[in-house]
C-alpha cells in the first residue's frame, strides 16, 4: 500500500480540473483481458493509449463542435477523459490492441503465451 502511495505523481489543481474518468467494463477471458471504456465524442485521432511499466493510461480528447445559439440545458462536459490502470504482469504488452467505435474503446490485452494453460503430452 505504501509503495503505491509513494509513486503517485504530484497533481496540480489545473490538471485535476481537466479530466473526467470514463466508465469501464473489464473482463477476463482465457486468452487475456478486455477493457471497454465509454468515451463519447472521442474518435481515433483523439485517443491516446500509453503503456508504461505496469500501467496503461487512456486519454481521450473530445472532438465535439459547440452547438450554436443559446444554451437551454447542458449536462455534457468539455473535459477530456483520463484513467489509469495497473496491469497484470502476465499481460503481453507488445500485443495489446485498441479499437474505438461510436465512442466506446475496446482494449484487448492478451496474456503472454508463457502463462496460458498448456497441456503437456506424456511421451
Amino acid at each position: 500500500m505504501k509503495a503505491t502511495l509513494q509513486k503517485e505523481p504530484r497533481v496540480t489543481p489545473e490538471q485535476t480540473a481537466t479530466f473526467v474518468s470514463p466508465e469501464v467494463n473489464i473482463f477476463e477471458t482465457k486468452d487475456g483481458y478486455v477493457l471497454e471504456a465509454e468515451l463519447p465524442g472521442v474518435n481515433k485521432d483523439g485517443l491516446e493509449i500509453t503503456l508504461e511499466g505496469n500501467e496503461v493510461t487512456i486519454t481521450g480528447h473530445r472532438h465535439v463542435e459547440a452547438l450554436p445559439g443559446e444554451t437551454l440545458f447542458r449536462e455534457s462536459t468539455d473535459a477530456d477523459y483520463r484513467r489509469v490502470f495497473e496491469l497484470d504482469p502476465a499481460i503481453d504488452t507488445v500485443n495489446v490492441s485498441a479499437r474505438i467505435e461510436q465512442g466506446v474503446l475496446t482494449l484487448t490485452l492478451p496474456k503472454s503465451e508463457r502463462v496460458k494453460p498448456r497441456k503437456i503430452s506424456v511421451d
Partner: peptide
C-alpha cells in the same frame, strides 16, 4: 447526458449514447 440549444431557426438536442 443531454444538451439542448436554441437559435432563431432551430432547436438542437444532443445526447451522449456511446456504443
Amino acid at each position: 447526458a443531454f444538451d439542448v440549444h436554441e437559435d432563431k431557426d432551430n432547436v438542437y438536442v444532443r445526447a451522449e449514447l456511446p456504443g
